[in-house]
Computed example of a mutant assay.
Amino acid sequence: MTRFTRRLTATAAAALIALSFQSFTPAHAEPGVNPELGGAPHITNIEKVNERWDKVSVYSAAMNKVIVNDVYKAPSSGAPTFYLLPGIDGGDNLDPGGSWAPGTKSWFGMTDIQGFFANRNVNVVSPLGGQFSWWTNWVNDASRQYQTYMTAELPPLIDAQYNTNGRNAVGGLSSTGGTAVDYAIQAPGRFQAVGSYSGMLNPSRDPGQIGITLMGGGVSADNMWGPGGGPLWIAHDPTLNVAKLRGVAVYAAASNTGDVGDVDRMPAGSGNFTGGMIERIVWESTRAFADAAAAAGIPITYVARPTGSHTWGLFESEMQESWTTTIGPALGVG
Rank of each mutant, 00 (worst) to 15 (best):
N272C: 07
N202Y: 03
G328D: 01
N93V: 03
T25A: 11
T44L: 08
A13F: 15
A10R: 04
Y149F: 15
G178P: 00
T307Y: 05
L214K: 02
A293W: 14
L157H: 10
T151S: 00
V263E: 08
L232K: 12
V263F: 01
N165H: 14
N140F: 08
E47G: 11
F108Q: 13
M110K: 15
T176M: 06
A235D: 09
A294T: 15
D182P: 03
Y59T: 02
R120E: 04
A160Q: 10
D262F: 13
F4K: 04
G211K: 03
Q186A: 07
D159E: 13
V219G: 03
A10L: 11
W283R: 01
P127N: 05
L37M: 14
F273M: 09
R280M: 09
H42F: 03
G313Y: 00
L240Y: 07
N119Y: 08
A29W: 13
P267H: 11
P207Y: 06
W134Q: 13
P80R: 07
P86H: 11
E321M: 09
R144Y: 00
Q320K: 12
T148A: 02
D92M: 01
Q209F: 02
G178D: 06
I212Q: 00
W135L: 00
T239Q: 11
E51N: 10
I113N: 07
N137E: 05
S174N: 11
Y72L: 14
N119A: 12
D259E: 15
G98V: 04
M319Q: 11
L173R: 00
V139Y: 02
A249I: 01
H28A: 15
A142G: 06
L240S: 04
R305Q: 10
I17N: 12
Y146R: 09
A252W: 01
Y83N: 00
G218T: 01
V58T: 09
G178R: 01
R3D: 13
P207T: 04
S20N: 06
